[in-house]
């Protein structure tokens, strides 16, 4: 006899061996919270959003932000802030839409495709955050060069001693290094969270794709 038929015979017999949950047991269950992957992606994106927001608030009124005020670059800073928040809110909307669109009644493959679409949104979101960090840092350095009196006096000192190139090079390297470290840490963080969260789903999706090829 076929191995699976042997299993099937036993499978059908086993109907009475399962725990029997009462109406109340099941009723209590539907009141509980889901812990599905999709939900976690959504929650993590919310937490991240909160994280960036609280960082920007934390800087408000600090010595650093006073310095920025002195630089008088609000005409640039305000539009940039508005645009970046508009983009963040748009992402936020996408996350929510993806979350709502995911339906367990689709075929497994469709469902996985939809979740991976969500992951793509996450990826774009990460790229956006990192890119804005990068651009922000360079704008900051650029404005310091041009508008920061402290900076200009140091530059004058450097040019007096004939070390202008060295001065620029050091500034450039330090900026790159700091940005590199920050981006590295963030990438590691994203990789850990989303990588672990989606590992199993990815494996299963690959398996289904393999069947089709």
């Amino acid at each position: 006899m076929d191995e699976l038929d042997l299993l099937k015979k036993d499978w059908k017999k086993g109907n009475s061996n399962y725990p029997k949950l009462s109406y109340n047991d099941i009723y209590k269950m539907i009141l509980k919270k889901s812990s599905s992957i999709v939900k976690w992606i959504f929650i993590i994106s919310l937490l991240e959003f909160g994280f960036w927001l609280s960082i920007s608030f934390a800087f408000k009124g600090s010595v650093y932000s006073n310095k920025i005020d002195e630089l008088n670059i609000n005409h640039i800073l305000i539009p940039i802030t508005i645009i970046s928040y508009a983009v963040l809110i748009y992402f936020f909307y996408l996350f929510y839409k993806n979350y709502k669109n995911i339906s367990t009644t689709d075929s497994s493959k469709t469902l996985m495709e939809n979740i991976l679409k969500t992951r793509k949104t996450v990826k774009h979101y990460v790229i956006f955050n990192l890119a804005s960090l990068f651009i922000g840092a360079f704008i900051g350095v650029f404005y310091n060069f041009n508008h920061n009196p402290e900076f200009s006096s140091k530059l004058e000192l450097a040019s007096a001693s004939g070390e202008v190139f060295k001065f620029y090079a050091v500034i450039f390297m330090v900026t790159l290094l700091v940005i590199g470290v920050v981006i590295g840490v963030l990438l590691l963080f994203y990789w850990l969270i989303y990588g672990i969260l989606l590992k199993r789903l990815n494996n299963n999706y690959k398996e289904l794709k393999k069947l089709e090829s």
Binding site: S36, W40, T104, S108, N204
Partner: peptide, 9 residues
């Protein structure tokens, strides 16, 4: 099945 192979952590 979808829950078991897709959503469940």
């Amino acid at each position: 099945l979808n829950t078991a192979i897709t959503l469940y952590r």
